[in-house]
């Protein structure tokens, strides 16, 4: 590799600026909209002349909206439970698939992939009927189950890739050192697969957090309605005003947990944690 010249640096900088700008301008716009008072929305300026927090905390603000706080609670709870369940199940499944030799291993893996490719919209109708009959309609489990199911395949594939990287000698060493199979898994293998678990966790969480389809079809009240669905039920201050400011404010609020989650976990998503286990 040559050392970067000034021109290289300039082109790299330009490229990075374009990509970052492209990604962040819409976010900035939403933030700006959320700070704009209702009267000013139609004026078309990028920055509000008179920034206000009214859309967040005002009388019409999202936090005083009757449904938004409970929707936030639902979103957080459902996404977290779905994430934990999916990652735990996927970890066991992936470990078994990588380490054990059993019949139908390939079927499990390709079956998982097939589920991942299945369009969710195709099962919404039947699921709606089933959930009504089984009593899952408009409940937390009613959303947790489909979120977990649809993200499991991806999590299994990601995690099995990580497990495959971990030398099997480490399992054996732990067993000989006096660990039960489960202790060997918990104390040696799981910590080494942690980057994979965090990667899967983020993917599952984002899927569950952002989902609109299941949330809007399988809920009807504040009991289980999540934020993406709840936002569509916002009303303006009168029946003639569209609640643009509140929607923008709600969008900003729901983006924050995702950013926090990624920032917290990105440090853990460091591969190369296994360096030093074996030679090389």
């Amino acid at each position: 590799m040559k050392a970067p010249t000034g021109r290289d640096r300039f082109l790299w900088g330009l490229g990075i600026a374009v990509v970052v700008g492209y990604a962040l301008v819409p976010v900035a716009w939403i933030v700006s909209l959320s700070l704009t008072p209702a009267e000013e929305i139609g004026t078309g300026g990028f920055l509000p002349d008179d920034p206000t927090l009214a859309n967040y905390t005002g009388a019409e603000g999202v936090f005083n909206d009757p449904q938004f706080p409970s929707a936030l609670r639902n979103s957080l709870g459902i996404a977290l439970v779905a994430t934990v369940l999916a990652v735990v199940l996927a970890t066991f499944a992936a470990y078994a698939i990588v380490r054990l030799d059993f019949r139908g291993k390939a079927v499990v893996m390709s079956g998982a992939l097939a589920i991942a490719m299945f369009p969710p919209v195709a099962i919404i109708g039947p699921l709606f009927d089933m959930w009504r009959t089984l009593g899952f309609y408009d409940t937390w489990p009613g959303l947790i189950i489909p979120y977990m199911t649809f993200t499991l395949p991806l999590a299994i594939w990601t995690l099995s890739a990580f497990f495959r990287e971990i030398p099997w000698d480490l399992d054996k060493a732990a067993r000989i050192d006096g660990a039960t199979p489960f202790q060997a898994f918990r104390k040696v293998i799981a910590p080494l697969a942690a980057p994979g678990m965090f990667t899967s966790a983020i993917l599952v969480f984002i899927f569950a957090w952002n989902d609109f389809l299941f949330a809007t079809s399988l809920t009807s009240t504040n009991r289980a309605r999540t934020v993406p669905a709840a936002i569509t039920f916002f009303t303006g201050s009168s029946q003639f005003t569209f609640p643009t400011g509140q929607i923008a404010a709600a969008s900003v609020v729901v983006t924050v947990p995702i950013i926090v989650m990624v920032l917290v976990f990105q440090r853990r998503i460091v591969s190369g944690l296994t360096s030093g286990a074996v030679k090389g």
Binding site: P167, D169, L170, A173, I176, P191, L192, A277, V278
Partner: peptide
Amino acid sequence: AMVFQSYAIYPH
């Protein structure tokens, strides 16, 4: 106690 060819020491 076993010593492996790959050493198999726990990297974490």
